[in-house]
Nucleic acid binder design. Structure first.
Lengths: 143, 143
DNA sequence: TTGCGTGCAAAGGTTTTGCATGGCA
DNA sequence: TGCCATGCAAAACCTTTGCACGCAA
C-alpha cells in the first residue's frame, strides 16, 4: 500500500519530527515552525497532504479537539490504537495510551449500563499529565 | 446574571429547539435549517452570539469533535456536567451523561495507574447508542 | 428612552483544491 | 521517462468582529 511513494527531504524531516514526538499530539503549525527551524521550509499544503496520507495509512491519529485546528500523533501501526482510549494532556499535548485491562471494564460498563457501544477511534479523554500537574501545583501563585 | 436580556422571537425559538433536543448535540447549521423551516430565518451571526452567551452562562455544552464544526447541547445547570463524562453517538448525535458511580472508578484508575488527572469538561466518548446499534444491525446489508 | 438584539458586510483562521512545475526512481 | 511530490494561488468553510439599525422593556 505504502510502497509506491518517493523519499523526499521534506517527508523525511516531517516523519522524523512526528516519530520524535510520538508521545505527543502536534499541530500543522508546529510542523511548519519546526521545518523552518530545520532550514527546510515547506508549503502548508504539502504538510496537510502528507498528514492526510499518513492518517489514511493508519500511521497517524488525528485529534479534533481545540476546536479550531487539528493535531496529529504518530502511532506504530501494531499498537492497535483503535482498541483503547487515549488520554491527552491539555497543557503539553502528551498522549497516554490506555491499553490496560481496565479498558475492558470501561467498555463493558458503558455497554451494559448505558447501552452504548464504545468506539475508541475518536474518543479522547482530556486532563493533566503527571508532569503538568506538578507544574500547576508549583506555579499556583505565579502566572 | 441572565436577568437583563430581552425576550425575542428568535431566541425563544432557538431555545425551544435546544431544549427539545436536550438529549442530542446540534450544530449551528441544524439550528439555521430549523429556523428557516419555522419561517423565522435568522442570521448566522445571531445564532453564534446567542449560543456563545448560553455557553458562558453554563446552559450549553460545546462539543468540538467533527473537526470542522462545533455542536451544542442544552443542559440543566444543576446537572454538574463538569463532573462526569459524556457519551456521544456518532450516528445520531445523542448524548448520554455518565453520571453514575462508575465515573469515580474511571477517575481513580486513570489517576493512580496513569498519573492522569481527568478533566471531564471537554472529554467525550464516542460510539453507537442502543437505537443506532440496532439500526446498524438490521441494515447491515443495505447501504 | 435605554441598551440589548439583529443583520450585513468584512475579516480571520484552518483546510482543501486545481494546475503547472519539480524531483525521485 | 513516468509518476509522485511540491509550490502557488485561489477557494471553501466555519467563526468572529465592527457598525448601524431595530426593537423589547
Amino acid at each position: 500500500m505504502a510502497g509506491n511513494q518517493y523519499r523526499t527531504n521534506s517527508r523525511t524531516k516531517i516523519m522524523a519530527y512526528l516519530t520524535a514526538n510520538r508521545d505527543q499530539a502536534v499541530s500543522v503549525k508546529d510542523i511548519d515552525i519546526h521545518m523552518k527551524e530545520e532550514k527546510c521550509p515547506v508549503n502548508l499544503t504539502t504538510i496537510y497532504r502528507y498528514l492526510d496520507k499518513l492518517e489514511k495509512e493508519g500511521s497517524l491519529i488525528r485529534y479534533t479537539d481545540e476546536g479550531d485546528k487539528a493535531t496529529y500523533q504518530y502511532v506504530d501501526r501494531e499498537r492497535k490504537c483503535g482498541e483503547h482510549l487515549h488520554l491527552k494532556c491539555t497543557a503539553c499535548g502528551a498522549v497516554v495510551h490506555l491499553d490496560c485491562e481496565f479498558m475492558d471494564e470501561i467498555s463493558s460498563h458503558v455497554l451494559e449500563h448505558h447501552g452504548f457501544l464504545l468506539q475508541c477511534r475518536n474518543s479522547v479523554l482530556y486532563g493533566l499529565c503527571e508532569k503538568c500537574r506538578e507544574k500547576a501545583q508549583k506555579g499556583k501563585n505565579t502566572d
